[in-house]
């Protein structure tokens, strides 16, 4: 369970509150620059909120013991140094949270990078970098996944794969929070953010309301329909 409670940062976020629940895919939607990445970074302890709290299973990220076993996060870029091999990157990550080394081979297999394990991360295509980032997120088999724009840089086959993968994660009972400026993926719950404020929050049906489709609701809520 992810809970964001009245999180603010001057000029970026204004009293942002929402929850993401287990067993559901929560889409965190908004135009570019709406505050999605800032919220995710605060949730993950990379940035600080000036007021408000962001917790995962009732604890701030920085208080989680062996955090990779609780939360898997995918951010912009792979997180691997370009001169390090994919395998070496995942090995130090596994060591940092006392995870068994065998997990490295397993997650490489899951994301389809087994063949590229010995290649340096700097030689990876954008899509492969995202897969490596996802492999890192899955290392600790975490019950919570937080993904910032997971579809960026993926080719159509990769997008399909990611959509199915995220649905499967939710079906397994995991909490899946993903931010996106696209709307083309299956969601159970929706949070729409615009200019640092939550414009709508609820189940897909609740947010769609009378708008007919999520696209129409999104455009109406974010005022982007003017063109």
């Amino acid at each position: 369970m992810i809970r964001i409670d009245r999180v603010s940062r001057p000029r970026i976020l204004h009293e942002v509150s929402f929850e993401a629940r287990p067993g559901r895919v929560t889409g965190f939607l908004g135009p570019n620059g709406a505050g999605k990445t800032s919220t995710v970074r605060i949730l993950l302890g990379l940035d600080r909120a000036s007021t408000g709290t962001a917790t995962i299973n009732s604890q701030p990220y920085a208080a989680l013991p062996r955090p990779l076993t609780v939360v898997g996060a995918l951010l912009d870029g792979s997180g691997a140094h370009r001169a390090r091999t994919a395998r070496a990157h995942l090995r130090w990550l596994a060591a940092s949270n006392a995870l068994p080394r065998a997990r490295v081979g397993e997650v490489l297999e899951t994301v389809g990078l087994t063949e590229a394990a010995g290649r340096r991360a700097g030689r990876f295509s954008l899509g492969m970098s995202r897969r490596l980032g996802l492999a890192a997120a899955l290392l600790g088999d975490p019950p919570v996944l937080v993904l910032d724009e997971p579809f960026n840089g993926l080719d159509p086959a990769g997008i399909l794969w990611m959509r199915e993968f995220l649905s499967r994660c939710a079906a397994e009972g995991r909490t899946v929070l993903l931010s996106s400026h696209l709307l083309d993926f299956p969601v159970d719950d929706v949070v729409v953010i615009n200019r640092g404020r939550v414009a709508a929050h609820g189940t897909l049906a609740e947010v769609q309301g009378d708008h007919g489709s999520l696209e129409d609701a999104f455009l109406a809520l974010t005022g982007a329909a003017s063109w």
Binding site: L44, G45, P67, G77, G79, A80, R82, L93, N97
Partner: peptide
């Protein structure tokens, strides 16, 4: 400085060891 070179390793580091 390896942490701050391209690839954003510092974020992976802080996600793994946030304290």
């Amino acid at each position: 400085t390896q942490e701050y070179e391209s690839g954003g390793q510092i974020r992976a580091t802080l996600l793994a060891v946030p304290r």
